[in-house]
């Protein structure tokens, strides 16, 4: 009989919120959950719902909160949600940077300065030229994203530019240097950049290729593997349809673990196809590689 590759939650460090559901103003070719203006599969989370989970998270000792979508800032409660979260702990929001408004950033700057905690913005881009970025993220998005980055800088935020690797891993250094040049030219003196691997599910499966049958995690592959590298060992994801094991698997029914955080703390079998990338690269979704040391 096959033994399932079970991963136990060591501790709930990171609590994620699918705060904009699957709604996005962009339709990126590599999106791993196929978000778009037409995908209403998952809906918005309102402030009251987020607050309920924030309260539940305190007794569980959650360390940090993450917000994603879709595009979080399509949710009209987003600013209020981040303001409230900063009473509980550090918050990171993953945005495409194209819909940000000054009035929101003004409020968020005030909220962050009053809080002991950090508010991080992660802005996605796919190339350091419009020619590379726009075919993936949509026509004209390159300039709109840069305008968003400049607006964040104007309000004193230091966004982390996340770049999905659409080319060869060997070209990372060149990609990194290109982004440094671009961002410096846009007034970002000491740019923060993170290069991420792609996940071959959702739209990305059609753009590139899906996973091969051999690309599955088995229980043997967990022997001696550092499980801190796997998100499901230290994170859970809140959506409007319940709590899921991680941000990547919300379209996988088996990944729904319950309605409350308490119910979601049980172990999970990482035999889904995207689990292979997490196993291979680890730490896909953190601001900083958990292995990074000073």
């Amino acid at each position: 009989m096959m033994v399932l590759p079970m991963v136990t939650l060591n501790h709930l460090d990171d609590l994620w919120f699918q705060v904009a559901g699957t709604w996005c103003n962009l339709t990126c070719q590599h999106c791993f959950i196929s978000c778009s203006p037409h995908n209403r599969n998952f809906g918005f989370l309102d402030l009251a719902t987020v607050e309920r989970y924030l309260h539940e998270s305190v007794a569980l000792g959650v360390k940090e909160y993450y917000f994603t979508g879709g595009e979080p800032f399509l949710n009209r409660d987003m600013t209020a949600i981040l303001e409230r979260t900063l009473d509980f702990g550090p918050a990171t929001v993953l945005t495409n940077g194209t819909v940000l408004q000054s009035a929101w950033l003004e409020r968020l700057r005030t909220a962050e300065s009053k809080s002991p905690y950090c508010l991080e913005f992660r802005v996605s881009m796919d190339g350091f030229t419009a020619k590379e970025n726009d075919p993936v993220r949509g026509d004209g998005t390159f300039e709109r994203i840069l305008a968003g980055v400049r607006l964040l800088l104007e309000y004193g935020f230091l966004p982390i530019l996340t770049v999905t690797r659409t080319r060869d891993e060997q070209e990372d250094a060149e990609l990194f240097a290109g982004f440094v040049r671009l961002l410096k030219a846009n007034g970002y003196a000491n740019p923060r950049i993170k290069i991420l691997p792609t996940l071959r599910i959702g739209a990305e499966a059609e753009r590139c290729r899906g996973y091969a049958d051999t690309e599955r995690v088995t229980s043997e592959m967990l022997d001696g593997h550092d499980q801190n590298q796997l998100l499901c060992s230290h994170a859970r994801m809140v959506t409007d349809r319940g709590v899921y094991v991680c941000p990547i698997l919300i379209e996988t029914p088996a990944a729904r673990l319950g309605t409350t955080l308490g119910e979601s703390l049980r172990p999970f079998a990482i035999n889904q196809s995207a689990c292979y990338t997490c196993w291979q690269y680890g730490a896909l979704c953190a601001n900083v590689d958990p292995e990074a040391q000073g």
């Binding site: 360390k63 940090e64 509980f88 550090p90 002991p116």
Partner: peptide, 15 residues
Amino acid sequence: RTNEFLWESTTSSAF
């Protein structure tokens, strides 16, 4: 964990 970074701004009191 020996190599865990506990910064003031990224460590909640709940944790």
